[in-house]
Design a protein around this nucleic acid. Structure first.
Length: 484
RNA sequence: GGCGCUAUCGUCUAGGGGACUAGGACGGGGCCCUCUCAAGGCCCAAACACGGGUUCGAAUCCCGUUAGCGCUACCA
């Protein structure tokens, strides 16, 4: 049978920032509909008013947009559907699938406490709150507060064929009669989720496997409501380097953090996809189009994965070198401008030069920030000499000075119009031959003179990027420094 | 405690009874290239949690043990 109408959703609660774990759940949902067709929806589960904030709702939108995980219909806010949730609970009460529970919270807490002392597992007993119809009517009449509990079948089991775990079954005797509507009339999580998923026409519920034990309760709810049970896919968790649940102390866990660190969204997505999914055939670096093409639930992992920031960085480097200069330009430009390195108009004035700069730096970078850091030298007039560079390549002041002077002479004679790699290389290698020394003996002190650093792109690239005037000025500056 | 999920190099993973001397990638080590740094190329170290079955044959199937994780609320 071909599934023509898939409807999947990502349903975060707005109680923090968009977490990388959440982002990965969203990604798999999104990949599924992109690969097999259908709609990808977003639902904000904001029913916990004490913890939900508009700020984190905004952060979720921003994170999703930055990652390019677009949703197909208007955002659904769970809090707007309270009336329907309540109606569903009442319907269940009417059909006898649920019952009123007049137990007070205090009693419940005390009983739970006592069970704990006796080292027994606590289970709610239906008999505790069973009254004759007259008594119950009287209590309702009187206005006694009650919660509505779902009547879990006594025998048998509730099972489903999970898209990642295959069959999972829970004996019904282990499932408590759970509350679906609190005594204040608000719905609980399981009811709200099922009610909303039905209303949204969700066909596949793909979420973290911390929800596995909620699933039998939800299935029971679908059945009691007379609705088709959707398919479930439970994704493994993401852990920190110590095997514990990923949290702040493992470093950045918010998608926004990575955005600001200069990571490429496609690289983050690629890395996250590999945490819990494998396309097989040793494929690792993928564009998002390739991920869509290759996605299948078959490759989904059952085991929790540990988040390795090192591999993320590597992945970003891979995507950096995969991208063309044109694709990279907008991102690099905004990073450069916001760092105050240069201005947009200055870059627009010499696009060719700018493209060459990006081209030369991107291969030496893992993050956009690496590009920015390395780019600074090519924009500013003043120069600082790094002490390790000076110690290493200008140790012999006298000798360095002579070499730099000779190089200056050679370069001054190169016409500005033929300031290109071939000419420059011929000039400097020629000098090395004249002096009877290795070319490196010239390049290294020269590199320090031009960049102040002992690492940089190839020396001819540096000369070209700096241009004739600035290059010569820097050499003269270095001579002054060495003379002092 | 009860219930559930999981278990291949340090990490992400391939593998689905014989193709396994267990493959790839990150990270680590070494070499090559080379004006430095990257990138790239080549090489090395590194794993089937343990115990029982089933089978001619088990990383692979079954059972148990152990460990990790999750849930165990009138939170989501």
């Amino acid at each position: 049978m071909i599934e023509t109408k898939n409807r999947l959703r990502f349903a975060p609660s707005p109680t923090g920032y968009l977490h990388v774990g959440g982002a990965r759940t969203a990604l798999f949902n999104w990949l599924y509909v992109k690969r097999f067709g259908g709609q990808f929806l977003l639902r904000i589960e904001d029913t916990d008013k004490a913890r939900s904030t508009d700020e984190s709702t905004k952060a979720i939108f921003e994170g999703m947009e930055w990652l390019g995980l677009s949703w197909d219909e208007e955002v659904v806010y769970q809090g707007a559907n309270l009336e329907r949730h309540r109606a569903d609970a009442l319907k269940l009460l009417e059909t006898g699938a649920a019952y009123r529970d007049f137990t007070t919270t205090e009693d419940l807490e005390r009983w739970r406490e006592e069970a704990k002392e006796r080292k027994e597992s606590f289970k709610f007993k239906r008999e505790w709150t069973q009254f004759s119809p007259e008594e119950e009517a009287a209590r309702v009449e009187r206005g006694d507060p009650f919660a509505i509990r779902f009547k879990v079948p006594v025998g048998g089991e509730t099972a489903w064929e999970d898209l990642v775990h295959e069959r999972i079954a829970f004996p019904n005797k282990d499932i408590d009669d759970f509350v679906i509507l609190r005594s204040d009339g608000t719905p609980t999580y399981n009811l709200a989720v099922v009610s909303d998923d039905i209303a949204m026409g969700i066909t596949i519920v793909m979420r973290g496997d911390d929800h596995i034990s909620n699933t039998p309760k939800q299935i029971l709810l679908y059945e009691a409501l007379g609705k088709t049970v959707p398919k479930f896919a439970h994704l493994p968790m993401i852990h920190g380097i110590d095997g514990k649940k990923l949290s702040k102390r493992h470093g950045a866990t918010a998608v926004g953090d990575y955005q600001h660190e200069g990571l490429l969204p496609d690289a983050l997505l690629n890395f996250l996809a590999l945490l819990g999914w494998s396309p097989g055939e040793d494929r690792e670096v993928m564009t998002r189009a390739e991920m869509i093409e290759l996605f299948a639930t078959k490759g989904l992992q059952k085991k929790a994965a540990i988040f390795d920031p090192k591999k993320l960085e590597w992945m970003n480097g891979q995507h950096l070198s995969l991208m063309t200069v044109e694709q990279l330009e907008p991102t690099v430009t905004s990073a450069l401008v916001s760092e105050g390195v240069t201005t947009k108009s200055e870059l627009d004035a010499r696009p060719e030069w700018y493209h060459r700069l990006i081209d030369v730096l991107k291969i030496r970078s893992r993050l956009i920030d690496d590009i920015v850091r390395q780019a600074k030298v090519y924009f500013q007039d003043d120069i600082e000499y790094a002490s390790d560079a000076v110690d290493k390549h200008w140790k012999d002041k006298e000798g360095s000075l002579n070499i730099l002077k000779a190089a200056e002479n050679k370069l001054a004679n190169v016409d500005a119009a033929s300031w290109d790699e071939a000419t420059l290389e011929a000039a400097l290698r020629g000098l090395a031959e004249e002096l009877g020394i290795g070319a490196g003996k010239i390049f290294q002190p020269l590199r320090v003179a031009l960049t102040g650093l002992n690492v940089s792109p190839g020396i001819f690239d540096v000369l070209i990027l700096l241009g004739k005037d600035r290059s010569l000025r820097r050499i003269q500056l270095s001579e002054k420094y060495l003379n002092s």
